[in-house]
Design a protein around this nucleic acid. Structure first.
Lengths: 284, 284
DNA sequence: AGGACTCTGAAACAATAATTTCAAAAATTG
DNA sequence: CAATTTTTGAAATTATTGTTTCAGAGTCCT
């Protein structure tokens, strides 16, 4: 028998144009109810014109919009009359024992618990510190978390000046410590299999009145003693490794918070950056 | 909110006329989908005239048939919609307008939609490819996604041999391309502000029969044309940047899947790695 | 940078849906 | 059983939806 409308959309998604993709997203978003309005309202919802809706319907193999809508209604009828609770699964096509669904469950649980444990004032205080442009910011990660440090660095660097990513090789760290001034910030990532080098570094900079912001797991790295701000993140996953998803979530949320605090600066920096990229393009 | 349409109908059933009762029965029969057609077809279905439908809608307290139909659609939406999407607050202590809660909503929505669009067979096929130790794996990212590439590299490298992370500098890429054999895998990260270098690279390796696995956003990088496997990930966030959280989720889930496929190999590699770390400790 | 191509939405048009009118059919009543 | 009231649907009318056309915007390619 034939595919569902959502199957068809996904199938042909890559052949759809920009306006059609907007539409596809709206249709799939609250599927299939979002397709049950008039063509006019659907077009408005997707911010495209009604002709685009018609064209898309035809591209998907229907004679017109009403035809597509009928197909949706028929599917809906079949779904509704079938009492299986489809929505307790993340990926509806996969069994709930599939790794995708198990992982999603774990991550959501991690997120919920991590947020529950985090007083928003702490979060706000850290975002305020990072937004204070008088303080230089240093970032350092461990073996696994280095990628996270890198990610934070790349983003903060656009937001404001004076951001430094310490290299993976701990031999060079003292050179950077030399530069740090009182009031500067050191963001440390240290997640289980805590690394001795990081503790040494933390102790060292603490003596220079550098404030430490620590990202660690629910058990807490020993660096915590030296840190003035700490994010304890739940990192459990159905895998031999820990999950960094929630940590990344925190980094992005933090970046967004800093961004709104110093939007004026950030905006002009982003513009400059765009200009520089454009010039680089011209060179080749 | 007040009563549902079906409540109202049952309430007033005794005051309905003969034609109206026919209608009521049709509406309640396949509730609420049967009410989602045009007034004409509904009238035909109930074997009454269209004016009867209008009169009934007004008798039930609606301004007309479209008004009733909207009410039905709203109910349907509330029933169908995913309970997880309705999570009111993530961080209980913060107001739901706090960036943490807004970000959490966005990320969950991204996750749900990305999973919805991903056929699990595709996922399984990719994990099987990555678990095939005869194939060398190359990984490359762009400006922002480099950290993700790095993260995947760090993890895969423990799982199996023959993993290479291409450097950020695209000048050196040809040297690596030289090494690639037919059947090898190239994992490409390319998220909006698609990078021309990556397209060139993709075209180049495609000619050598290297299979490309692409991680991109919901709009789809132009690399997609050359890719044999593609993950379209929704990346919207309440920020000037896109969110990489769901992409990282996919990487971790994929890593976990590969890990279970070749657990024998991975286990012994992890043991060896532990031993090496221990010896390194002894050196200092 | 310019030409060929594709994509898009405003506007005109066609089709259909929804409402109103009204006369006839059914039900109710004395 | 006729007079009255209520209910009903055919037909006319109005409102809205859905489709087509077409010119200009945008993109791609050399």
């Amino acid at each position: 028998m034939s595919d569902t409308v959502s199957d068809i959309i996904r199938d042909k998604f890559n052949f759809l144009t920009r306006a059609e993709r907007k539409l596809a997203n709206v249709l799939l978003d609250n599927y299939p109810v979002s397709g049950m309005t008039s063509i006019t309202r659907l077009a408005e919802l997707a911010e495209v014109s009604t002709p685009s809706v018609v064209r898309m319907a035809q591209k998907l193999g229907f004679t017109g919009f009403p035809d597509l809508q009928n197909a949706l209604r028929d599917e809906l009828e079949a779904t509704i009359s079938n009492p299986i609770a489809k929505h307790d699964r993340w990926s509806q096509q996969a069994p709930d024992t599939h790794i995708l669904n198990r992982f999603a469950d774990a991550v959501i649980d991690n997120l919920r618990q991590s947020l529950d444990q985090l007083p928003p004032e702490d979060f706000d205080r850290v975002s305020a510190l990072l937004a204070d442009r008088k303080r230089a910011v240093y970032i350092v990660g461990g073996r696994i978390t280095h990628a996270l440090a890198d990610y934070l660095f790349t983003h903060l660097q656009v937001l404001r000046e004076n951001i430094t990513l310490l290299p993976a090789n701990s031999n060079i760290w003292p050179h950077h410590v030399l530069n740090m001034k009182p009031g500067d910030l050191l963001v440390i990532f240290d997640i289980r299999r805590y690394e001795r080098d990081l503790i040494n570094l933390a102790d060292m900079v603490k003596e220079q009145d550098v404030e430490i912001i620590l990202f660690t797991d629910q058990w807490g790295s020993p660096v915590g003693k030296a840190a003035s701000h700490r994010f304890n993140i739940k990192i459990e996953a159905p895998s031999a490794w820990d999950s960094s998803v929630v940590t990344l979530f925190m980094l992005e949320a933090l970046t967004a918070a800093v961004e709104t605090r110093i939007w004026g600066v950030t905006k002009s920096r982003m513009k400059q950056l765009e200009a520089l990229f454009d010039r680089k393009k011209l060179f080749r």
